[in-house]
Write a protein that binds this DNA or RNA. Structure first.
Lengths: 165, 165
DNA sequence: ATCCCTGCAAAGGGTTTGCAGACGC
DNA sequence: GCGTCTGCAAACCCTTTGCAGGGAT
């Protein structure tokens, strides 16, 4: 329980993450370039989801000079090292998220304000078991996304729905 | 129970679907063009998932003349009429599937052979309820996809894993 | 000094759009 | 005949690729 909190804190700490990344780069014989570390830093010092274009703009505003090509390239390494996860919500551009993958979690996206809610769902694990029993399918990962209306937007526009009695 | 079977048969029947589509076109004041019906027919007389390019080739081989633009356009109508659902697995092209949406279902995709398994999961509905209670989020739809190795591919390549005792 | 990595720009693939002609209404 | 739908091709967006120069090792 408290161990999880510790881990989570480590995740938010750039130095710890930097070390993990360095080990990954050493292990896979990739060069430790300043661009790669500045990208990692930018990702880990900001909360939430982001796409490549957003990250590109953010880094540009922070006086870093990185090309989109390098961003795509580096995201690949971060994905493989498990420091980042990638989501493909709908048909728009891919969304990335910092994560050490200790806790796979799921998402609910508001169709009005595009807000993303994150939550953990142990029952998904049970569904996985059923999948194995029924089809012999061994799941290694999953994606669960709910689309709907969040609480705030529910209050705003659909107040009439509530009155219905 | 048996009613479901009846419904399912109706779904597979082009004439029944044609009528539903016609009603939709009337209701929404869209024109009933031959292209739209031939697309609907092509979709409903073949099983499984497909993408636009596959559908385009298939129709070309069947002496139908439709452009990709019309396919995209018509898919939009079929989506809105509930006769087709759209999936975005990964970052490749969108996958479509015939469906009257009586039974929303989920998918498991084999990372080796790309086979898609379909299954229904009532527990997802329970997760939806939790989402409403916890965050006040009203889900209107969802997407649940498992990635892993199917039974067949498990036998092929990972036989060693089974022996482990 | 090697040769991987970077930045730039062009190419690529899927989807959308603009336009002129066709045809459902 | 009016106004929408079609086919074609160009435009579009996100992502990948090719190439020459630069920097990590």
């Amino acid at each position: 329980m408290e161990k999880n909190a510790e881990i989570q804190q480590a995740v938010d700490n750039y130095d710890a993450v930097k070390q993990i990344f360095t080990e990954y780069l050493n292990r896979t014989k990739h060069r430790k370039t300043p661009e790669r570390y500045s990208i990692l830093k930018e990702i880990y010092t900001r909360p939430g989801h982001f796409d490549i274009e957003t990250l590109y703009i953010r880094m540009k505003n922070n006086r870093y000079r990185v090309s989109r090509a390098t961003l795509y390239n580096t995201m690949e390494l971060l994905l493989e090292s498990g420091l980042v996860v990638k989501h493909q919500f709908g048909q728009s551009s891919a969304q990335y998220e910092k994560c050490l993958c200790f806790q796979p979690h799921d998402h609910a996206i508001c169709l009005k304000c595009r807000k993303v809610i994150e939550f953990c769902e142990p029952r998904v694990g049970e569904i996985e078991k059923t999948l194995l029993q029924t089809f012999g399918f061994r799941a290694s990962s999953h994606s669960l996304v709910f689309y709907g209306i969040c609480e705030d937007c529910s209050k705003d526009g659909q107040a009439d729905f509530e009155k219905k009695d």
